[in-house]
């Protein structure tokens, strides 16, 4: 139960961060972390395939695409976060934790247990033994993203030298 609440807190925390942060790269990374929490929650609720796909596609693949796009579009690396964001976020988080602490325990006890899904096994087994090729493909996507950034930033650096 404690782990579940921590995971849900993490999910909400990083989801809010993804919305509030002005630096797009940080926002994309926050979304990835939120997705990681969601994937673990899926897994714990007896849907390991959904968990694996959530982590691999949203936390892995889509984050690379976001990071790539952000790297290609932004001109300045420094982004000033709004003061309001800095103030609102901790307040938001504290309110969330209070509501969570008061409500969640009772709420979770009312949720009926889910029937076991068709797929079984630990996270590692599903990812490594059942979906191994997906890992290879994701490595391919990440490699393509890294190479794309290397290739598309080359001239800008040369222009700067000139």
């Amino acid at each position: 139960m404690v782990i579940q609440i921590l995971l849900l807190s993490g999910l909400v925390l990083f989801s809010i961060l993804a919305i509030l942060l002005k630096d797009l790269l940080k926002a994309a990374l926050s979304l990835a972390v939120a997705s990681l929490f969601l994937g673990i929650i899926f897994f714990r609720l007896g849907a390991p395939y959904a968990g694996v796909f959530e982590i691999s596609v949203v936390a892995g693949l889509i984050t690379v695409l976001f990071a790539l796009t952000v790297a290609l579009t932004r001109k300045d690396s420094e982004v000033q976060e709004a003061r309001l964001t800095k103030l609102v976020f901790p307040l938001f988080f504290v309110i969330f934790l209070i509501i969570d602490g008061l409500v969640m325990k009772g709420l979770l006890q009312q949720v009926p247990a889910l029937p076991a899904g068709p797929e079984t096994g630990t996270f590692g087994e599903v990812l490594w033994k059942a979906r191994t090729f997906d890992l290879v493909a994701q490595l391919g996507v990440i490699l393509a993203g890294v190479l794309a950034v290397l290739a598309l930033f080359r001239k800008k650096e040369e222009d700067k030298d000139e």
């Binding site: 090729f133 493909a137 391919g140 996507v141 598309l152």
Partner: peptide
Amino acid sequence: FSVYLFLEVAAVASYALVAFGL
């Protein structure tokens, strides 16, 4: 699903290659 992922591998590389001239 692996078809989808490899589709993306080829696609991400091709986006960068189309823009290679900058």
